[in-house]
Design a protein around this nucleic acid. Sequence first.
DNA 1: TTTATTCAATCATACGTTTGATTTATATAA
DNA 2: TTATATAAATCAAACGTATGATTGAATAAA
Lengths: 225, 225
Amino acid sequence: MNANAPTSRSAEIPLILAAIELFGRNGYAAVSTRALSERAGTNVSSIKYHFGGKKELYRAAIVYVTEQVKPRIEFAMAALTQARSLAGDDPALQARLIKQLIDNLLKFFLGSEDIPHFMPLVMREFLIPGPYFETFYEALPRRLHELFCELVAMVEGSDPQDETTILRAHALMGQIMIFHVARPVLFARMNWDSYTPERIDNITHQVQQLVLSALQLTDPDVESS
Amino acid sequence: MNANAPTSRSAEIPLILAAIELFGRNGYAAVSTRALSERAGTNVSSIKYHFGGKKELYRAAIVYVTEQVKPRIEFAMAALTQARSLAGDDPALQARLIKQLIDNLLKFFLGSEDIPHFMPLVMREFLIPGPYFETFYEALPRRLHELFCELVAMVEGSDPQDETTILRAHALMGQIMIFHVARPVLFARMNWDSYTPERIDNITHQVQQLVLSALQLTDPDVESS
DNA sequence: TTTATTCAATCATACGTTTGATTTATATAA
DNA sequence: TTATATAAATCAAACGTATGATTGAATAAA
């Protein structure tokens, strides 16, 4: 029983990776089974054999991405829960927690990560829900959203379930998300064609300052003028 | 010479409206010429006759939407330019200007407007640029972006062309945009299925407070506690 | 052998486009 | 007004192609 024997089920992962890439770039309808199998280096019929059809391959791609990203979110949730008990009522610690989270999220959304090509697919499902939105929503955006609500509730001393808290957290998350979502617009405006590390650093700093300011926190790492 | 005679060229507008609706809802590749012509109540071949093909119909839809929305943005730009000279250094007036703009934008993005169905198409082009992104970008998002940068620059006393100003304005716009863009996520989270006027009011209020706070302005319409 | 996987070839269908005839509108002249 | 010529617009039908799905033989592994 060789665990990484490439013989059996060898076409499944290549097909899923091709699906993540092509569906992410062009959308479901614009990608043909032939294009998928060609990118994966397999025969067209392996899609039916391994998954049942094009739709099921799309679903498998979403499940795959979800399972890749889930542990990170779980980890962040756990870390936050732990940090929350430490941060307590200390505004400086709260501010650092928020800065850290913004930094992580922006690197996650904008940076070239180790799992390279899955973001477009995630975003597509995020923005234009497909038939498997539920599968995806429960595992990813919901957790992320709850995470952010916990933070806002902590700072403002409110209930993380409150409508107001959720709306405010949602709005603040928009400051991060828009840099991924409206990328074409920002790039056209700035004459950019990629997010370099320096640009991400600058964006991170500006967003951190805006969010801290919005939450009436002062940055503990900058002496006030 | 009856100006509104429905006889000649009567299939053009219905086809464009069908294109705005269907392309907006399902994306370019997922919509067939037959579906378009059926929705418009015309024959398939009128697409070739009036526009040249499916691609050109898509372009016509973008141009149409652009021309519908452009005057509003021009008007808002003019109003802001005028208001800016009045607001000057008065933080209270600046705050009211910002509140007003946020209110307008959220109503525009979330509310059921007079031109009812074009928002999904606009957003699609916004998020996933098609071959006619340039046409669209110059007329809409660019103006909106500049508008917001002007405002931020006014409040912070900075140059509207500065990278920092643009990034901060971009981030703040995210607080508004996300309520349109991540609509499926928010709805799933809140168990909503539409933006009612009350919900839009609440969202508007929260975003206004967050943006004012981020820009270190106090709301002139609320006495501080 | 039995089972799992790949492959070239084929199926019916849906696609965007095109055709050629037909209908409708407009203009001109008696 | 009516008749007629020209142009504009619509239509049913068909074109060739690409699609997702499927087949059955071939290959590999247990």
